[in-house]
Design a protein around this nucleic acid. Sequence first.
DNA 1: CCCCAGGCCGCGC
DNA 2: GCGCGGCATGGG
Length: 201
Amino acid sequence: MARRTASLHKEYEKLLKEYGPQAWWPMRRGFAPKEWEVCVGAILTQNTNWRNVEKALDNLIKSNVVTPEATLKISSRRLEQLVRPSGFYRQKAIRLKTLAQFILSYGSFNDFKRIERHELLKVKGVGPETCDSILLYACGRPYFVIDSYTKRFVRSLGMEPANYEALRAHFESRLPKDVALYKEFHALIVEWGKRKTRTKL
DNA sequence: CCCCAGGCCGCGC
DNA sequence: GCGCGGCATGGG
């Protein structure tokens, strides 16, 4: 176990060599998403195919609902219709408004960025994966994201994934505390997962 | 027609 | 602290 897990960084290097550097968060319209868009994506992708999330993101962008302020201002009914393609749309509309309100209560997004993890986890609709996605990809903080792809990946290495926190500790304790590395490794794992399950692009 | 997708909440136990 | 049903759309 120790030998296998100690080589986690080598698994990273293998993926990097095979796939090349990935976008840190799915790139849309040819450029990297803004911080709030990452938060929105993290909520909308909960148990949902990213393709459906993109449709919802397109709707939000077309309607210029691209900030926490605009997300609070729009009616719940309208917001529901915009995010509808991503599924669970009533829940997700609520979660977006809740998160927007929460972030704005910090004043600026930059102030929000220093939030304690356990505080962000208290927000209704923000579970461990959504939380760490926001912390890593929107706040630039060194928290390794554990999602279904990550669990599949460690299983492919011959480990049984433990609970979320244990798995996160597993990654974080065996990798240099490096935000860029965490982002890249996670993106590579997602790419790995998509290639493995892809039947058709 | 059935299964799945980058979860999370609320409940019962 | 863990297991389970509910939440909903779109693609294979």
